[in-house]
Nucleic acid binder design. Structure first.
Lengths: 239, 239
DNA sequence: ATTCAAAACCTGTCATACAAGTTTAGGGAA
DNA sequence: TTCCCTAAACTTGTATGACAGGTTTTGAAT
């Protein structure tokens, strides 16, 4: 009954690390799907021959990565994929100066250019409607930065979803946290009314192209959007 | 001395969630950098007026995301960004059938085409040497799949590093876990000697282009690499 | 078969204890 | 003084027990 594999952290043996491995293995072997319940803490504690403390810390670790979900009174359940953890990881990277905002924008441009290309091809009519509505909502809240930002984020998320690739959606979501913190800087650096309305119009051009099912034009408009954004951030002296 | 913000999980109040928030805030306010030490568990336990259990679970959560690092006897320290958590998240998505392998390859193609473009422009001579050496190592281990795979992974990682954008490196790393599980499938589906040597030659073409500083050709070769890989996986009936 | 309340179960948090690893402080040697 | 080493002080990892709320299951009465 040895527990040799560690797979998790350093190399050494750690009860919690082993527990994480065992629980992960259990999920795979039982082919648990989102919503399915895991054994209780005491059950696992007995099976793995460790204290409940260890099982709880293992659960917390998995919950932090949004692999499982914890609720009081209920057993832990398998989660749907979620960008929450990735968002925090990216934010940490930026705050510790291991990543700068320009680098994030380069990745976003790369990803999102591909996203609109796919979205233009694959979007459903329903998705098209949502995308168009969000672009309009941006135009309507031109004087309310906080609201404008939320519509902007929702717009990019809607595009990612329309790409029909959950990994793109995950990555776009991962940048939301840090974007929320830097977006106002880019907005403030657009001092003229022209620059501001150009930004909104660009979003409308993207929306139109996706709705029209024109991948080329959608990609081009998205690229232009990022040119503007990067320019605005540089203007503001960001990184 | 209220602790109102929760920022972490659901919406409700959770001692652990609040602790995660408080610790994260502490890191930002004190502008802690990788390697810097956090207060001890008992210290935080006193400051936040919660039990050590709660602090420990909060620490575990942050450690799971590789935001901090835990070591016995030592205080927790701020981590360098690391793809470990993202790797597990992606693996979870695939195992629960929320993501399929083709979708991952589409994202990888998008990302890695951009990566080689940047690498061709920015690679240092040192990085060029490593990339070339890894491509050669792949050719040399053509008969040893396990080793070939490791060289392959190292090759893509080296390219990502040469792009000089840590976010690209992070994302490429995030796919390593699941790639390690699917790579053998792609390899086995290349049944002819031709298909196998073509795969290795393509990597050498990529390396040459990056070393030569030719972004166009590098991107083209990488694109071809993914055409082949996706073809091989489809052949194997993967998703 | 249905309903409902009690019993059984489950998670969140706290307190305490102790082994084992690390850091620090202080004293002694050079 | 400076350097080195050891003992004390501190820290983390794990276990155990307790109890307040939640949630699910059971079983009896309708």
């Amino acid at each position: 009954m040895e527990e040799r594999s560690s797979q998790s952290e350093k190399s050494g043996s750690s009860r919690v690390g082993d527990a994480i491995g065992a629980i992960t293995r259990h999920i795979r072997e039982q082919e648990l799907m989102p919503g399915d319940r895991l054994p209780s803490e005491s059950r696992l504690s007995k099976d793995l021959k460790v204290s409940r403390t260890v099982v709880r810390e293992a659960f917390r670790s998995l919950a932090a990565m949004r692999i499982i979900e914890l609720n009081v009174g209920k057993r832990a359940t398998i989660s749907n994929i979620d960008h929450g953890a990735m968002s925090l990881i990216i934010e940490h990277g930026v705050h510790t100066e291991q990543i700068n905002v320009q680098q994030i924008y380069d990745v976003r441009r790369t990803i999102e250019t591909r996203i609109v290309t796919l979205a233009a091809i694959r979007r459903s009519d329903e998705e098209a409607k949502v995308i168009l509505k969000l672009a309009q909502a941006m135009a309507d809240s031109a004087t309310d930065p906080a609201q404008l930002m939320e519509h902007d984020l929702a717009f990019h998320t809607a595009l990612a979803r329309a790409s029909r690739n959950p990994v793109f959606e995950l990555i776009v979501g991962a940048f939301q946290g840090i974007t929320r913190q830097t977006w106002p800087i880019g907005w403030k650096s657009r001092t003229t009314a022209e620059a501001r309305s150009t930004m909104i119009e660009t979003h409308q051009r993207i929306a139109s192209a996706v709705v029209a099912g024109d991948p080329q034009q959608a990609a081009e408009a998205m690229s232009k959007h990022f040119d503007e954004s990067v320019h605005a951030l540089l203007q503001a002296g960001l990184s």
